[in-house]
């Protein structure tokens, strides 16, 4: 399968604008602004949308492989890794030229992944066959494959690089993998359909969302047991529609943000109080979340409405929604 990469310039209504962006693209600078860039994967369009976080407009749309879902940057933000699920490949986008420069071997149906702090090893969930694939991104080869539970999805690596945690959606488990030996060490049973995991910056807690269980579990990393379970309640929204998926935590461990799927809201948790302090109305079926560099902005991908919501973190208000491609899924911010 050949995967094309190209840049389409969209959303330029005035000729001057068009020429400016076009020239930029033709000499290899598709993103001339110095503002932060938000990259969004559009699952049903096979594209990425690039948003300028200052002007809050889509500046480029990049064609990638089939059914792009998880996306993540390398440490210096020079490359973006893309799970092209239906191409059975993890693609590497060169951020400067915005061209796909490599397809990494990923195993079948990669959905989410995490990059080890060594900036080299990529841990990939292969949703269709109960395996985690470890890829050396430098040598571009598979180092190891690890058997996990049914429908592996969420993936996170502890800040010290010791633990790799994978969620399996139908086994309802968090699998704890030792990153040195690639051995599966332990399993933590959580509520139905765990989708996403996130370590706190201090590495002491792990947060896991259960989409069908409707809960978020906080796990004590030292003993790998659940220390707290959050539930959610939004007036006027039926309880079964509250389906937590994406989670993101602020670096100071003050807030946790939880995307609640078809409830169309993002929950704001005050971690010290162990309490949901606000629900922010965003677009339809909100999947994933990302914070910008100084954590003043939170970005949510809203699958069904085909847009992203930009949230001001200080005032906890939604500033704007921006139309992207069909079924936006993954979000990553480049400073």
């Amino acid at each position: 399968m050949t995967i094309k990469s190209a840049i389409r310039v969209i959303g330029s209504s005035t000729p001057l604008n068009f020429i400016g962006v076009f020239l930029g693209a033709s000499i290899g600078f598709a993103t001339p602004s110095l503002a932060e860039q938000v990259y969004v994967s559009n699952e049903k369009d096979n594209t990425l949308s690039v948003i300028d976080l200052d002007t809050l407009t889509v500046t480029a749309t990049i064609e990638v492989g089939l059914r792009p879902r998880g996306i993540t940057f390398n440490k210096d933000f020079s490359q973006l890794y893309i799970c092209a699920s239906d191409s059975d490949s993890v693609q590497v986008l060169d951020v400067k030229t915005q061209k796909i420069i490599a397809n990494l071997p990923s195993g079948v149906d990669p959905e989410q992944f995490a990059l080890h702090p060594n900036n080299k090893d990529l841990y990939i969930s292969n949703e269709d066959n109960a395996i985690v694939t470890v890829v050396d991104t430098v040598k571009r080869e598979v180092i190891s494959q690890i058997d996990v539970g049914l429908e592996p999805e969420g993936m996170a690596i502890s800040p010290d690089g010791k633990w790799v945690v994978n969620t399996s959606e139908t086994s309802n488990m968090l699998h704890w993998i030792d990153s040195d030996s690639h051995e599966l060490i332990d399993n933590t049973l959580v509520d139905q359909r765990p989708r996403h995991v996130e370590f706190s910056d201090d590495g002491k807690t792990l947060w896991a969302s259960s989409e069908i269980g409707g809960t978020v579990s906080v796990i004590d990393v030292a003993n790998r047991t659940i220390s707290h379970v959050y539930t959610f309640k939004i007036p006027g929204v039926y309880k079964d529609k509250i389906q937590p998926v994406g989670i993101t935590l602020t670096h100071d461990n003050r807030f946790a943000f939880v995307a609640l799927g078809p409830a169309n809201h993002v929950a704001v948790i005050d971690i010290a109080q162990q309490k949901v302090i606000k629900y922010l109305l965003v677009g339809r079926r909100v999947w994933h979340l990302a914070l910008n560099g100084d954590e003043t902005r939170l970005i949510s991908s809203n699958g069904i409405s085909g847009d992203v919501s930009i949230i001001d973190v200080k005032s906890l208000t939604v500033l704007k929604s921006i139309k992207v491609g069909r079924f936006p899924w993954g979000v990553a911010v480049k400073p």
């Binding site: 059975d88 598979v142 180092i143 058997d147 599966l184």
Partner: peptide, 24 residues
């Protein structure tokens, strides 16, 4: 093993001969 899983293992092995399957 299911057929699809076998296929995946085959692919994985084909991609890198150093591939190992571990299982606790």
């Amino acid at each position: 093993l299911r057929p699809r899983m076998c296929l995946c293992l085959g692919l994985g092995l084909g991609l890198a001969l150093s591939t190992q399957i571990t299982n606790a």
